[in-house]
């Protein structure tokens, strides 16, 4: 009986959800889109409601971080924590380079600058969760 089951498995080919998996290129495009614009991965997967909530929350968190004059961490300082902070903030997508482009520079002496920095990094981390969620949906692991 186990032999028959094994033969049936071999002849039947991959399960339905495996066959429906998107290609690697599609997955990479999806993840890059989800990284650049928070919630855009969900939007592309037709989870519009989720996409709007994710976009609103993550961008609002980032904007609050800017309003509190949080700092952007720099690369090349030799500090591991600053390097991690830089990558964490960059995870929010195009918003961080855009803020830099428009001349934003945090003020470490401002009273709520530390909170602002925490908000900026947290926005990036939330976007990582959103990217992973979009990936899971694309792979058919989540509804």
């Amino acid at each position: 009986m186990p032999k028959r089951a094994a033969e049936a498995e071999i002849t039947a080919g991959p399960p339905a959800e495996m066959a429906a998996r998107p290609s690697l290129t599609t997955l990479v495009r999806l993840c890059v889109a989800a990284w650049l614009i928070p919630g855009f991965g969900h939007w592309l997967l037709n989870r519009r409601g989720r996409a709007i909530v994710l976009f609103a929350c993550i961008i609002l968190m980032f904007l609050l971080g800017l309003a509190m004059k949080g700092e952007f961490f720099a690369l090349g300082t030799g500090s591991y924590l600053e390097t991690l902070g830089h990558w964490g903030e960059l995870c929010v997508g195009i918003a961080m380079p855009a803020a830099r482009f428009f001349g934003y520079a945090g003020d470490p002496l401002f009273v709520s600058s530390d909170y602002g920095t925490a908000f900026l990094v947290s926005a990036g981390m939330l976007n990582v969760l959103a990217i992973l969620d979009a990936y899971d949906i694309a792979m058919g692991r989540k509804p």
Binding site: L54, M61, A118, L126, L129, A130
Partner: peptide, 12 residues
């Protein structure tokens, strides 16, 4: 902070 993070956690 709690409101925004909780909303994202709930959605995800």
């Amino acid at each position: 902070f709690a409101a925004l993070v909780s909303t994202v956690f709930g959605v995800i």
